[in-house]
Write a protein that binds this DNA or RNA. Structure first.
Lengths: 200, 200
DNA sequence: TCCTATCCTGACTCGTCAGTCAATTCTAAC
DNA sequence: GTTAGAATTGACTGACGAGTCAGGATAGGA
């Protein structure tokens, strides 16, 4: 029997490269050759593991999603106090560091691609559901502990998440009026207004 | 001297068609031939009025923006009471009717395109500034009239607008968890929380 | 009526790129 | 060392679409 399989690591390598390229030049301009080059391989190899360009892109979106979740897992376990947990969780989405910025870029590309692709809508639905449930759960914990004001946790989670999306988008667009600092301020204001303000 | 100029109306016709096509199949898949067909003309004519595809797209984004503003002008004049004005203005952005949906679609495409195009970032900056100023002005009016709670109107405007963007995006994506009705509810909740709730 | 500038057309060119494939290299087992 | 199947390569093909262009149509003015 020949060689041990390198499929898993080669796919990872390609998808990681794909995410980098998407975030740098965008889905529209991305060529398979770009991904291959970034992954340090050839177009033939990319096609060996993925049938079509669409396959690569879908898998890359999944990859981006899975990693985003993984990166946040520790935060959810680290803070027993729901006030701190909520603050830290939201802070982890601020587009400050390179990794988070890249993830947001890929996200934005996914959204627009999904407008005309029902498979990607399904992915968005899954991801968004996950995110919504996570935030709503923290809010519920905080309410149970008597820290947060009453009110439907799901509506508040939706409002919070959507605002973060919208704010992040403006930051990504390099708006002179929406910096990471202002984004943080806006988040804090809404948390305050919703009675979800973390402890000082 | 020959013929009266048809340039203005022909450009309008082409840009309107371009917006329709963008909203239907997306920027990426859009071909000049699609725009020409939709406008009831030929690719040659499109190139007669616009040098490159990029020109068409940028002009289409401008077109979409200008029309969005025009459509809302009457709302701002119609309601003397800032509470009603804010409610009506926000309601006009709910992606319910065909026209608003189309405008949102084009918006979303602009955002992602702008991630890698500084001219479009400039356009976004202008549009967003306009929007932010408008909402902030209404909030300020409401505060002056003693209807709204105190607090920085610009931060609140930013928070509100971003949330509307994020919510609208999920509605556009056909999320089962984010319908127009839930979007309305989320908006109302934030208005309440910010002490910007319109009169009943 | 002719003239002229504007407007319109669609066939064509030419670059680009996804996807194919035949040839080659590599690795592990025997 | 031989073999078999996995992995890799990059030149090639075929489709596609932006932008060009030469040839016309059209509308007003002289």
């Amino acid at each position: 029997m020949p060689r041990v399989s390198v499929e898993a690591q080669r796919r990872e390598q390609i998808l990681s490269a794909a995410c980098e390229v998407i975030s740098e030049i965008g889905f529209k301009s991305l060529r398979i050759a770009d991904v291959a080059k970034r992954a340090g391989t050839s177009t033939g190899t990319v096609h060996y593991y993925f049938t079509t360009k669409r396959d690569v892109m879908h898998a890359a979106f999944e990859h981006n999603f899975a990693h985003s979740l993984d990166r946040r897992k520790p935060i959810l376990d680290e803070y027993p106090d729901p006030r701190e947990r909520l603050r830290a969780f939201i802070a982890s989405y601020l587009p400050e560091d390179q990794v988070t910025l890249r993830a947001w870029h890929v996200w934005a590309e996914l959204w627009v691609e999904a407008l005309h692709d029902s498979d990607l809508q399904e992915l968005n639905e899954r991801v968004y559901g996950e995110w919504r449930r996570t935030v709503a759960a923290i809010i519920r914990d905080g309410q149970d502990a008597g820290y947060f004001a009453d009110g439907d946790p799901v509506i508040r989670a939706n409002a919070l998440i959507s605002m973060i999306d919208g704010l992040a988008l403006q930051v990504l667009l390099g708006s002179r009026n929406m910096t990471v600092e202002r984004m943080r301020t806006a988040c804090d204001e809404v948390l305050q207004a919703f009675g979800l303000a973390p402890a000082q």
